[in-house]
Design a protein around this nucleic acid. Structure first.
Lengths: 351, 351
DNA sequence: CTGAAAGCGCTTACAG
DNA sequence: CTGAAAGCGCTTACAG
């Protein structure tokens, strides 16, 4: 509330009526004479009066909000989750704040700033270091849950997809399709996406891949696991380590991309080597984000349960608000296999 | 605020101290004895006390928020704008609500619900019918600006990109590259994206295309303007009318997509006809949204000034909040040509 | 139809 | 170190 802003009392004085009358007139109650209403309206307009939402909310007692703290680096990524959280919040009769954390900024500072904000709880998206967050939330008395699949050590109830099982499922599917030489792109930390850090999901998805191979009796080969390119060049990047592999004469049966995001570069790399998808090589991803539908051919992938994840975050928060103590553990939700052209057996003829 | 929730007074009673002491203890002020602090903490915990953000905000008087009302259909679309608005809001020391409007829902109802929300102003994104919105905002006394390029009739200050000039610029560029037979995809209302409705931007971008042709002395040909496909099939859609054109023996020099979103289907259609991009046909888009970087080859496009648009929305709202009366007109911002592989003259050889 | 008063749940001088 | 009181800006019985 800016200082010097006109209040109800100012309007009342200017209009020469009582506080209550101003309130009634401005809220369009029928039990005020037209003449008075008009006078009050004019006075309010003259003073540039605008009601204080805070005071109103306090008095009416019917306002409640939740907060989503979203790191810039995961905005696009978590957009469907944010959207689901917004819907769930609205359905619960609450409202949702979005607090951005800029790339240079610190989520802890953002949370500290929440002390003055009328919010009841915090959903933190994409911030891997949870300890400081938890301390800050405890300090200002706000329940908090995290949406994250990077953190190795948890200090908060944390929601994510079941990454290991999902990757295992996809690998099993590729094996069922008859593929044995399956390259896993994005598993090495050599050429890493900075924001992924040493994300847990990398390990988990790689582990799922290995589990499926082992279960099928296919030996794991280190050289089939490659890193990824620098995301700065999203539009033109090739996957260096995949290139080397292809140049060395190894032609994979299939490529499993650790994330759909990686698929455009993988497809470009295969295409540069005159390999056709899915006729020569099957390609699969993980996430089912927009890239999966844009690439040609459309990508078979494991769909993260974005909608469920967003809703679960709101539900957990509501339980905390009601006083329930949530365990500090991962709440994992199943990813779902979505089959598209990039892995179909009934492939088109070679181009 | 849930009913029956413990208040400061409850805690004070339980701890056998005064209100003020509870407040101090819970806020970690140093001027409370450790013993008292401990007792208060315990009482608060036992009662499940959590401070009322609303009361705190009212009392401290340092809270202010803006609201973004975002239609589901434009979520992904306006995500960078929303992000910029969030940053600008935070920089101004304010906070941002996100209020989703579900596909079946009505933005006016959402705004009506804002009467009880401590917000100072509203940014409406992607809602073309402004009249009801304006009325509702006036009724509850909230300043409002729109981010929209669909509405033909304005009732609100409205921000958008300079669509006509942008399309003209792109067409000029294509002409400069030596192209004359330039197909415009997305300009017909025959095969329309439902959510685009009769969007103004469609007319504007088409008009820009025509202006550039006229200026270059290239006759406008109706049959070179085609509709687009149903977005439900995003991953596999071909552009029907473009197909017919190609089948009829017309090979364009270039294809200008009304939106980047259309480009994947256009590229698929050209590819199905063994036309290589950019060697055989140049392809350009509009928006510079993510699809532009994912398609292969990466797309030359007009970049919408998302960042500026989001920031301008916040700035205009702040001016309204300060009492300035904004004109009901379009605030247009320049789009910028981004040149990528899809139109390069120095094209690769044919595949 | 209108006004004075109480109160929403906090924080913060002010006085011990 | 602690408490009683005032007050943030509204709304809403309660009484005229």
């Amino acid at each position: 509330m800016a200082t010097g802003r006109a209040t109800l009392a100012d309007v009342a004085r200017a209009a020469g009526v009582g506080l209550a009358t101003v309130s009634r007139a401005l809220n369009g109650r029928p039990d005020v004479s037209e003449e008075t209403t008009e006078r009050v309206r004019r006075a309010a307009a003259a003073l540039g009066y605008r009601p204080s939402g805070t005071a109103r909310a306090l008095r009416r007692g019917s306002f409640a909000a939740l907060s989503a703290v979203v790191h810039d680096q995961v905005w696009g990524w978590w957009e469907p989750v944010l959207r689901a959280a917004a819907s769930a919040t609205a359905e619960a009769g609450m409202h949702l704040f979005v607090h951005p954390v800029t790339s240079g900024g610190d989520a802890t500072d953002v949370i500290a700033g929440l002390a003055n904000v009328p919010t009841e709880g915090v959903i933190v998206m994409g911030v891997p270091h949870q300890e400081a967050l938890r301390e800050e939330c405890t300090r200002i008395g706000l329940p908090v849950v995290a949406l994250d699949d990077s953190a190795h050590t948890l200090h908060l109830p944390t929601i994510s997809a079941r990454n290991r099982a999902g990757a295992r499922r996809m690998t099993e599917y590729l094996i069922q399709q008859g593929h044995r030489r399956i390259v896993f792109v994005g598993g090495s930390t050599d050429e890493f996406v900075p924001s992924w850090g040493e994300g847990l999901f990398v390990e988990e998805r790689l582990a799922g891949y290995r589990e499926a191979l082992a279960a099928a009796g296919i030996p794991f080969r280190d050289e089939l696991v490659t890193g990824w390119a620098d995301p700065e060049d999203e539009s033109t990047a090739l996957v260096g380590q995949l290139e080397e592999l292809l140049r060395s004469g190894v032609t994979p049966d299939a490529v499993f991309c650790i994330a759909d995001l990686v698929a455009p570069a993988v497809l470009r790399t295969l295409s540069a080597h005159r390999l056709s998808v899915p006729a020569d090589v099957a390609v699969a991803g993980f996430d089912d984000e927009r890239a999966a539908l844009i690439v040609d051919p459309p990508l078979t992938t494991m769909r993260q349960p974005y909608e469920e994840m967003g809703r679960l975050a709101v539900e957990l928060l509501q339980r905390e608000i009601r006083g329930e103590a949530l365990p500090v553990r991962r709440f994992e939700l199943d990813a779902e296999l979505v089959e598209r052209e990039s892995t179909r057996r009934a492939a088109n003829s070679r181009v």
